[in-house]
Design a binder for these strands. Structure first.
Length: 217
DNA sequence: TGCCAGGCCCTCTTTAGGGCCTT
């Protein structure tokens, strides 16, 4: 597999849903995707979606998304097919990817589309890179790092924007603090699976490999 | 209108338990 450069677009996704897991019948109510390239947001996708599923009151209280809002939204299958086209082959990132990747797969399956994108998780990365942070909840780690809040929390686009800002900050810090020249998705995926005590050695090795001059053909 | 997941991580650990994170 050819290594991805840091300028390769990464799709940062966030779902609002009716519950915690598709395995229990929860469905998505809203999806937002932010394309991050070279540390900058280059495109955005956002839509409410109508799955026909009932939204419990406490979810409406949390997200502000009502049953009336999704009743007027486009069908979920239509939204997900458009979302899949928007993402293309870009690798994906989410804050607690275990959650969003399940809904990504489940809603795409409902739309008859296969989910093939690899996911990386900003929660796992945040725990590796900022172990001093008191919390790794999205809003709190954003505050801890001094990043701007983006709109109403628990709406998909605002959360995706904040997760993208967090990812961009991680890429920046990997360059500045850990001297990793190419903090691409491959490194992020490796880093999130690396035990915390081994992170400094991993990053040192990665930086050394990146600094090694390419062999001329 | 309901009714409680799952993967990861830390520690008072590994023959386990409990907290975190997402809606």
């Amino acid at each position: 597999m050819e290594p991805m450069s840091s300028s390769t677009a990464i799709a940062v996704i966030d779902f609002e849903t009716t519950g915690m897991t598709p395995a229990q019948g929860a469905r998505a109510t809203e999806v937002a995707i932010v394309l991050l390239q070279g540390g900058r947001v280059v495109d955005r996708f956002q839509s409410l979606m109508n799955t026909g599923a009932w939204i419990p009151p406490f979810i409406t209280q949390l997200t502000g998304i009502t049953n009336a809002m999704v009743a007027e939204a486009p069908p979920a299958a239509e939204v997900m097919r458009e979302a899949a086209r928007f993402v293309g082959s870009a690798p994906m990132v989410a804050h607690n990817a275990a959650f969003d990747s399940k809904f990504w797969g489940a809603e795409l399956a409902q739309a008859g589309v296969a989910a093939q994108q690899p996911f990386a998780c900003t929660v796992l990365l945040s725990r590796r890179l900022y172990p001093e942070a008191p919390s790794h909840k999205l809003g709190l780690i954003v505050d801890h790092l001094g990043l701007p809040r983006a709109g109403r929390a628990h709406r998909a686009l605002a959360d995706a924007e904040m997760a993208a800002a967090l990812l961009a900050r991680m890429q920046h810090d990997l360059r500045q603090r850990w001297h990793v020249d190419n903090p691409d998705h491959a490194l992020l995926s490796t880093l999130q699976r690396c035990a915390r005590p081994k992170v400094p050695a991993l990053l040192a090795g990665w930086a050394a490999a990146a600094a090694r001059p390419a062999i001329a053909a």
